[in-house]
């Protein structure tokens, strides 16, 4: 079998691809969060950051394509694995028993689907700006004098909608939950895990996921004015 076929068709190859694409997406969502946290700084910062990204030009599109490919592969293989795994046990047990598989690990497909739905909504909402043509018009003048798109206002307006914010919070919650299994799992799939540092890895995953969830959730909550200190940092 050639290399690509082995990766896409063998059970371990698929695991490796899941882990690798998972790792990329994990890196992406982490970076994305760091960028978003600039909402708590003056508007100048996040808008300059937006300019920086847009200035990448073709490279940005390459990155976007790569991320898209990762998403597609991650999902495509997840579907295959799920089908194969169901087929591997056509008759289930009369008594359901779980020794130690975490709930997070058992609902990966379901959390994944919600995250996917959110991703589609999120792209439509902020990147393609469906329903909000005015967001493309808003502009912001940086200290340097350059006029850029006003990302700050877009985010604040976007999350001022309670429904959107709740959906966002639920989605990042489920993504955190998804990652709580995914982070440890990808290290195992990449063949890098052993008993010596499993505990540390698991601890990291728990801290990361809570951190990821709380920091992400803080953005809409602050915008909605529901957080005492952070809400004060939002410029309206």
């Amino acid at each position: 079998m050639n290399l690509l076929a082995s990766l896409f068709q063998s059970s371990i190859g698929k695991k490796l691809l899941m882990a690798f694409t998972g790792l990329v997406l994990f890196g992406f969502v982490t970076g994305h969060l760091v960028g978003n946290l600039q909402i708590f700084l003056p508007p100048e910062k996040i808008n300059a950051y937006g300019l920086l990204l847009e200035s990448l030009g073709g490279a940005l599109w390459l990155i976007r394509l790569f991320l898209l490919a990762c998403v597609v592969i991650h999902i495509w293989i997840a579907i295959q694995l799920t089908i194969e795994n169901r087929a591997a046990r056509p008759t289930g047990y009369g008594v359901d028993h779980t020794s130690r598989a975490t709930l997070a690990s058992r609902v990966m497909a379901r959390t994944g689907i919600v995250v996917l739905a959110f991703l589609v909504f999120h792209l439509a909402h902020f990147t393609i700006r469906i329903g909000h043509p005015e967001w493309s018009e808003h502009s912001y003048r940086l200290a340097s004098g350059t006029a850029v798109r006003d990302v700050y206002t877009m985010v604040v307006q976007g999350f001022s909608n309670v429904g959107v914010s709740i959906f966002y919070i639920i989605a990042v919650g489920l993504l955190s939950y998804h990652l709580s299994h995914g982070i440890v799992s990808m290290v195992q799939s990449l063949g890098l895990k052993n008993e010596r540092w499993t505990r540390g890895l698991e601890g990291f995953a728990v801290i990361y996921c809570w951190g990821y969830f709380l920091l992400n959730a803080a953005i809409p909550l602050a915008i909605l004015g529901w957080l005492p200190v952070l809400s004060g940092l939002i410029h309206r």
Binding site: K15, A88, R100, A101, T102, S105, S189
Partner: peptide
Amino acid sequence: GFGNCTNQYE
């Protein structure tokens, strides 16, 4: 016809 490992360690 075995399934795939999803690192649940059952």
